[in-house]
Structure formats: C-alpha cells, structure tokens
Design a protein around this nucleic acid. Sequence first.
DNA 1: AATTTCCCCAACCGCGAAGTT
DNA 2: TAACTTCGCGGTTGGGGAAAT
Length: 362
Amino acid sequence: MGRSPCCDKNGLKKGPWTQEEDQKLIDYIQKHGYGNWRTLPKNAGLQRCGKSCRLRWTNYLRPDIKRGKFSFEEEETIIQLHGVLGNKWSAIAARLPGRTDNEIKNYWNTHIRKRLLRMGIDPFTHSPRLDLLDLSSILSSSLYHQSQMNISRLLGVNSLLNPELLKLATSFVSPQNQNQKFLLNNVDHSQLCSSQLQNQYQPLVQSKQDLPTQVQELPVCTSLNTSPSSINPFSNEAQLVNMVQFPSNFSDLNDWQGNALPSNLTEDYVPEPLNYDYYGSNRHHQTIMDHSLSETSNFQSNNTNPSFGFASVLSTPSSSPTPLNSNSTYNNGCGTEDERDSYCSNLLNFEIPDFLDVNDFM
DNA sequence: AATTTCCCCAACCGCGAAGTT
DNA sequence: TAACTTCGCGGTTGGGGAAAT
C-alpha cells in the first residue's frame, strides 16, 4: 500500500496565498461546495494542490472561523481538554466553536505551553515538574539518616509521581541499596521505559554535585509508555474516542454540545493521572472532571451555573466582575500576558501536605 | 537608524486511517 | 483481499514582523 504523493508538485504554487487565490477558492466552494480536494484546485483555476486548498479553507477562509485573541475561558477550556485529550488538537478544536486545530495548536505551543513551563507545570502531564523537587537532597537526606523512608510519604505527593519513578526512588532508600555506589551498579535498566525515561531518571543516579539544578522539561513518558495517548488518563482508548468523536453528520457544534456524553465517562471514568490538582484540591478536581465531561455546555462557556465553573474553584479573571458568558464575549475576556500569568499561578496553587516537614530536608 | 535576535503563526510535510476500485 | 486514492491529523518549518541591542 504505497503512499501516494499528495499532489503533482510540478508547477504548483506554494507559500502564502494571495487575495486573488483566496477569492477563487471562496467563489468555487460557494458555488460547488467542497468535496474532492484533489480536483478542486484544477476546477477552481488554482495552481495549488488540494491539500493546500483544504488547509487554506479550513484554517482561514471558512466563514465560521473566529479570529482574534483567545479568551480566558477559551484558554481554560484548552488547558482542561488538553489535560484529558493530550495533543488531540482536532478534538479540542471541535469543542471551541470557530477555532481551528491549527490555531489551537499554535496557541498552545506559543503561549499556554510556555506559561505552564514558567509556572513549573509539565505541559504534557499537567503535573508539577518533578525536576523542580530537589530529589537529590531528599535522597541524600534519606541515605544520611539510614532510615527506611517511605518515599511516597516523604514527598507527600504520591499521586504526582510516575509510579515507576516512585518505585525507583523507593528502591534507592531500601536497606539493601543504601550504598549509592551500589545503586549505580544496580539500577535495573529494564525498569526504564525508553531512552527518554532514562534521561528522566538520570539525575537520580548521578552524584549529587552533578545533579542538574536547572529546570528541564520532563519527557513525555508516563507509566512506561511514551505514546501520546498514554498521557491521557483514559485507560481505555475507546472511552477517549467515545468522548471526542462527533457524529459523521455533525454540523452544529452547539447541537452536539447539548447532548450528553456517553454515560460510561461520567459514571466510571476517574482521571487518575490528573489527580495532581492545580486547582486547589483533588476534591475539586474530580468535580471539574465530572462536570466537564457531563455538562458540556457549561464546560464550554456557561459560567452562570453555580455548580460548575472555573470561577468556583479558581481565583481567575473568570470570577472577576466582568462576566465571561458566551462566545460573543470572547474578545472581551482577553487579558495581558501578565494577567494570564497571574491566572496560571492560581492554577498552581497546591499545598504541601502537613506531614511533609520540609525542615527534614534542609 | 541599522542590525540582530526573538517570536508568532500560516503553511507545509509525512503519516495513518478510511474509502474506493 | 490487495492496491490505490483521498482525507485528516499532528509535528515542524520558515517568512516576516516586533523587540532588543
């Protein structure tokens, strides 16, 4: 099953579209609709490949495209959906009327992702980045005191940790492994899911002075699985598909949004890997997830429902006197980068558990 | 004012899935 | 059922404008 070239590249124009080309494409689609993208450019008198035409139409010329900055609520939605869906930009875009997957992808990569990194949140896992925890001092402290420590209790953030990392860290402080040199020779590399994961673990087996102090982005690797889908909390891919799939005759997002999602999502689904809560508490997080999955219309934009809304759990511009209520306000909800940083810092509010005495590690 | 660096985003590329012959 | 075609998705690139020097 050979891969066919997307188009005959001979003589076909590439690069930015001119107004004239745009008009030709619009005129043709208004007259004939779009169907066969391969023959469309020829019929429309365009020296472009079909793929280019499709992209131009779907990402720019479509009449229902919403231009302009993303509102806070749109951003909230993107972050939430990304936490659930990962880099399923088309699925995310389907929940944001007027926004294209390309636009959302760009916005994520240029704004949200950077902001999350600045805030110390791993943009892949939506969890705080482990490299921000000074594991070296934690480990050396545990070794120094020769005490058997439960590393998960020590960190107080059991749910934050990659179980494999936890396992590895725990093994480091087990009695038979107290000698760090011994550890270096006995790291079971079979536990490492990939070279990426090895890189993630690398600091743990380095001597303390070699431990990196700079912040590095965690690799995409959770539960010994590096596939993007593994990041999402769905253990069952079908659940995810059910959640994000649209009917083939889908034409009106609002109609779709009014429909309940599959019950198995609202009743059975527990978003395990997301249980780090950048919203304040695990309790709230579950609430968010339940609502986000079952009350799609509220999730989208309706913050008037007191039972749900980021405003109820976030100190964000959403709770400011200026209401964020509908698509029509999408531009009004825009803030400055600083405001959004502040907003994101609220996403980062999490408490150090009482039993985690940081003095132990000083 | 000129040059360099940084950043954004429209567009491209390659791949896999779905559809067709 | 295999071969081929078309479509859609996600990752990446590079042109151009903005900001910094």
